[in-house]
């Protein structure tokens, strides 16, 4: 497998200090660490939402640091998907339109998909993530878990090369969090590369690799079986033992 994402000596003063790591295509990686360790900041640098003080980020060989904000926006729209902790969606639109929003915007420029294709794609994603029946609803008329799954649909609508998620289960209850993680695993098994930030060992335990961030530096890495393999309990025990070792 070739590097899909390469992070080289990334600094964001005063939070990140020379962070380097790579991700292969099809991987599912979790970044863990205590509060204030710089997990989310790292994710935002990777997504090009913020400019690092120094260092480089490459997506499929293309450097995304050091390019204009407009170009970074274009990369995010066409090649990345992003899932927020707070399930940000537009109140002005219903669930289906929210999911279609990035697709319609991308299609405005590329014109590579017909309206019918887009609709089918959105409905198929919603079907897969069990939220199809909510498509006409307003964002205030669905549960947190359902909304986060709709957000995942939105992040997937432009068939991104990588899916980034910032504490995707942070605002959800236990069962909703489990539902969302099932979705991530399912997407990863279908080939989607996923990088997520979490402080929940259960969530991290469902990934294939965990990076441990402390004071802005990666100070540990745990390789697990590929997502979905083995029992969940066993995976969680391994993660917890490792975290204890890391001083969690």
């Amino acid at each position: 497998m070739e590097d899909l994402l390469r992070v080289e000596a990334l600094c964001r003063e005063p939070i990140l200090d020379r962070v380097s790591f790579t991700m292969n295509s099809g991987e599912m990686v979790a970044i863990m660490g205590p509060s204030g360790s710089g997990k989310s900041t790292l994710l935002y640098q990777v997504a090009g939402m913020d400019q690092p003080t120094s260092g480089r980020v490459y997506l499929a060989g293309q450097e995304i640091t050091g390019i204009s904000e407009e170009k970074r926006a274009e990369i995010r729209l066409h090649r990345m998907g992003f899932v927020f902790q707070q399930m940000n969606m537009m109140g002005k639109l219903n669930i289906l339109d929210n999911i279609l929003l990035p697709a319609a915007e991308a299609n405005r420029v590329l014109h590579n998909r017909s309206k019918l294709e887009l609709r089918k794609e959105a409905e198929s994603l919603m079907q897969k993530l069990s939220v199809l029946e909510l498509k006409e609803r307003s964002i205030t008329e669905v549960s947190g878990g359902q909304l986060q799954r709709a957000c995942i649909c939105r992040s997937m609508i432009n068939r991104p090369e990588i899916l980034l998620a910032d504490e995707p289960t942070g605002a959800l209850n236990k069962s909703a969090a489990a539902e969302v993680m099932d979705t991530f695993v399912k997407l990863n098994q279908e080939g989607t590369t996923i990088l997520l930030v979490t402080h929940d060992s259960k969530v991290a335990g469902r990934c294939g690799r965990i990076l441990y961030l402390l004071d802005g530096r990666i100070c540990g890495e745990l390789l697990l079986q590929r997502p979905g393999a083995g029992t969940q309990k066993r995976r969680e025990e391994t993660v917890n033992q490792w975290l204890e070792m890391m001083g969690w």
Binding site: E69, A73, Q86, M90
Partner: peptide, 16 residues
Amino acid sequence: RQETGMLRALGFRKKR
């Protein structure tokens, strides 16, 4: 503010 931030995070240009 958050909605516009989210649109930018999704890849919408400022001009747009």
